[in-house]
């Protein structure tokens, strides 16, 4: 059974179909929350909240975007709300999760370098504002188009473009002198 059929069934309150959908998308959501929070425990809690919200509001999923995009949008909102409450966000950065991360089409040595780069980038991103960090993550880690990011974040495409541009510039500035040593 493909995703579309599962979604149709899930919208008709089919628990099994929804369960299959959520199970197959769990890691994507968890990975995203992890990159946002840099803390596995907080990421697990937030992923759980995304799952609960998806179950409650499944009938509101229109199907005009991918199911994973919808979950990512829910995750983004939950993360932003948490930041507003600012209760659980006092967290310590824990990069041990990067060791468990595998890279596609990459040799062991390259993967080591990429992991190191990723750590640097995530650390720098974590120091930035959410409005700069989130579009960059969605673009460079998930390959979403500007249009999709605009839909997820409910902002104009031009704003997405300029935010990503500013983030890249900031990253380059932050790593000036260090950029070319890292790679």
């Amino acid at each position: 059974m493909d995703n579309e059929q599962l979604i149709e069934l899930a919208k008709k309150q089919n628990k099994n179909a929804l369960s299959i959908l959520l199970t197959s998308h769990y890691e994507i959501v968890y990975g995203y929350m992890l990159k946002l929070t840099l803390n596995p425990e907080v990421a697990k809690d937030l992923t759980q909240e995304v799952m609960v919200k998806a179950i409650v509001h499944m009938n509101k999923f229109k199907g005009d975007s991918k199911f994973s995009t919808w979950l990512i949008a829910i995750g983004t909102n939950i993360y932003k709300n948490q930041l507003k409450k600012n209760k659980r966000m006092v967290i310590t950065e824990d990069f041990s999760f990067l060791d468990a991360m595998t890279f596609q089409h990459t040799s062991t040595e390259d993967a080591y370098i990429k992991r190191d780069n990723m750590k640097t980038i995530l650390k720098l991103l974590n120091e930035m504002k959410e409005q700069q960090k989130i579009p960059f993550l969605l673009k460079h880690y998930y390959g979403y188009s500007y249009e999709e990011i605009a839909v997820i974040l409910k902002i104009p495409i031009g704003t997405v473009r300029s935010r990503i541009h500013n983030t890249i510039k900031k990253l380059q500035d932050s790593m000036k002198g260090g950029l070319y040593e890292i790679v």
Binding site: E27, G31, L34, T102, Q104, T106, N117, I121, H140, Y180
Partner: peptide, 16 residues
């Protein structure tokens, strides 16, 4: 080339 390798992460998500 360096910027490309720094910005693009074709990762597979963490296996749980």
């Amino acid at each position: 080339q360096q910027l490309q390798s720094l910005m693009r992460f074709e990762t597979t998500e963490i296996k749980l």
